[in-house]
């Protein structure tokens, strides 16, 4: 703690020495700033944080923090994060990655972490494109979008990430963007503090392959603050209504926050462990289990 400082951790304490490979101007630079700030606000020391990602430009993010990082394989950040959380429930577990990583190859996992209410914060850097592999169609790309794998325009409807997680019953669903860094930091902080699975979709422009309309200027033009709109984040149906406008409007802030968060999977595990521990045989006698009575 610095002599004149007031809080335990400063954003810079979460910044590592690795230099990002991102293209200058990439939205992910702001996202990592938002994460530094949110982590400083939450105040957990870096070594008690596990930060998992998949593969993609955005998935490089754990390396730029001082937390324990795990830049895993494409689409599998969530299963790994889930294992970390189960192995050590005391850790703060963050998962992050791209729209492709999360909603294409990894899309199948989200539903199950939500069902289990894993206490993990999942941040998707949604740029509507595959950045790392040079600009292919992503699951959130608009229909008609021309890319190198949709030369004559895409023929499929995009996934709506917000509606997707809301429909599966996620307890915390929010959206942020570099157009409002303060809001992003606050939103991520709130997501981390939420006890249970929390999802933050960050509209993070790709300056190299992204479309004009999805750059900062375009996003600013369609952005609207949920708080300013008077949206009640306890109202799940209203949240779903608003989430329908994904792609046309960029609502920023918390769509839904379960006012009565149910127990997390970790809580249930702990409960079960406590309940059953009295029945444990001493380990050295584990084989006694096979004695036929």
């Amino acid at each position: 703690m610095s002599a004149t400082g007031t809080c335990e951790f400063q954003p810079k304490d979460y910044k590592s020495d690795l230099k990002p490979i991102w293209c200058p101007g990439c939205g992910d630079f702001s996202v990592v700033q938002g994460i530094y700030r949110a982590l400083a606000a939450v105040g957990r020391p870096p070594h008690e944080i596990a930060f998992v990602s998949g593969i993609g430009c955005s998935s490089r993010i754990p390396g730029y923090t001082t937390a324990y990082g795990f830049n895993s394989v494409h689409g599998r950040a969530l299963p790994i994060a889930q294992g970390i959380k189960l192995a050590n429930p005391d850790l703060l577990v963050l998962a992050a990655g791209g729209d492709g990583d999360g909603f294409s190859i990894g899309g199948g996992h989200i539903a199950h972490l939500i069902r289990r209410n894993m206490d993990i914060t999942y941040i998707v850097m949604d740029n509507q494109i595959y950045g790392l592999t040079k600009g292919q169609l992503s699951p959130t790309s608009q229909k008609g979008r021309i890319t190198c794998t949709s030369r004559y325009g895409s023929m499929e409807e995009p996934v709506n990430p917000l509606l997707y997680v809301l429909a599966y019953g996620a307890g915390f669903v929010a959206q942020a963007s570099p157009t409002d860094l303060a809001g992003m930091a606050a939103t991520i902080e709130e997501a981390i503090r939420y006890p249970g699975f929390a999802f933050v979709n960050v509209q993070s422009p790709c300056v190299t392959y992204g479309e004009e309309a999805q750059q900062i200027k375009g996003l600013k033009a369609i952005s609207e603050s949920l708080t300013a709109m008077g949206h009640n984040p306890a109202d799940r149906l209203a949240a779903m209504d608003l989430a329908q406008q994904y792609g046309e409007k960029m609502h920023l802030g918390v769509f839904y926050r379960n006012p009565e968060p149910p127990p997390t999977y970790g809580d249930l595990v702990k409960e079960r462990q406590t309940m059953l521990s009295k029945d444990a045989l001493p380990k050295e006698r584990i084989l006694d289990l096979f004695i036929k009575k």
Binding site: S104, I105, Y130, L132, T133, K134, Q136, C148, T149, S150, R151, Y152
Partner: peptide, 15 residues
């Protein structure tokens, strides 16, 4: 599914 360094095979097909 795109993956370096094979993606161009799919790109040729899309063309």
């Amino acid at each position: 599914y795109p993956i370096t360094p094979s993606t161009e095979v799919m790109q040729f097909f899309t063309d």
